[in-house]
Design a protein around this nucleic acid. Structure first.
Length: 263
DNA sequence: CTAGTATGGACAA
DNA sequence: TGTCCCTACTAGC
């Protein structure tokens, strides 16, 4: 279940594995069969990530738009792994490697205009090279609801999902129910920098772990399991207090009432 | 077997 | 606001 870090990582890996190569494209599950037959045998040019959206650019100007939604994922297979699961929506295969796409609500051919329209409705992406701190601060200041709501709004910060919103607000000591517009500029800047740091780490490591290396206990370090400060936690890693959980933007929000101030 | 859960988002009204 | 899309895994009968 992907947030922006996963999408950016997939884009890198797809470009590395498939860029400039002739690719066999198929749809074992069947819902991408027409598109697959148009793409099959073409050269894959590059993958592009913005927020949680992924675009595959193909020879001849064809563009595939993928959104993984809540369940979608890409699986990298050894080239010898010939048998796809029946649920594979799109299989991209070269002699060296195979990528299987499973479970996306969106997998479609789009025009360049449609791609531009999708990009235009996204706010700044903490993983984009282009600096976004000012746009982010402006979007927060204009947001009518809480900062917790705001961080999940893709027009405010594209690519942030339920884990990163909870963890970034914990690390900045901000309670999610504060009105977004009430954050002062320093707090907004701190949230942005924290999101950037967490998500860059997540992209690099290929997991969503947010806890600093020196705060992991030895068992966690050994196991390599993802570790969080508040997301799905019972007790606060810093103060030992009970983590509160409550619905926010139709998702479950987690916060430590002691470490995260309401104002 | 069924129900419930999970890191998301578009669209209609 | 509600409806729909989409998969895999788990707990419980």
């Amino acid at each position: 279940m992907p947030e922006g870090n996963s999408i950016h990582r997939f884009a890198r890996e797809h470009t590395r594995d498939l860029g400039g190569r002739t690719v066999r494209v198929s749809s074992p599950q069947g819902r991408f069969s027409r598109e697959a037959s148009r793409l099959n045998g073409r050269a894959f040019l590059r993958a592009e990530a913005s927020g949680k959206h992924l675009f595959h650019h193909w020879q001849g100007g064809l563009i595939v738009h993928v959104h993984l939604g809540m369940f979608g994922w890409f699986y990298r297979r050894d080239a010898s792994d010939a048998q796809p699961r029946p649920t594979v929506r799109m299989r991209l295969a070269t002699p060296e490697v195979t990528w299987d796409l499973i479970g996306p609500p969106t997998s479609e051919l789009v025009t360049d205009q449609e791609r531009a329209r999708i990009l235009a409705r996204l706010g700044p992406d903490p993983l984009a090279p282009r600096p976004g701190a000012r746009r982010f601060a402006r979007a927060l200041a204009n947001h009518r609801k809480t900062v917790g709501d705001a961080l999940l709004d893709q027009r405010v910060s594209a690519g942030v999902g339920n884990i990163y919103r909870a963890e970034a607000l914990f690390l900045t000591g901000i309670h999610p129910l504060r009105p977004a517009a009430a954050l002062d500029p320093a707090a907004a800047a701190a949230v942005w920098q924290t999101l950037r740091g967490l998500m860059r780490r997540g992209t690099r490591e290929g997991r969503t772990t947010t806890v600093a290396a020196d705060e992991l206990d030895p068992a966690e370090r050994r196991s390599g399991v993802e570790a969080f400060y508040v997301y799905q936690q019972e007790r606060c890693r810093r103060c030992g207090g009970r983590i509160r959980r409550f619905p926010l933007t139709d998702r479950v929000m987690y916060a430590c009432p002691k470490c995260q101030r309401r104002r």
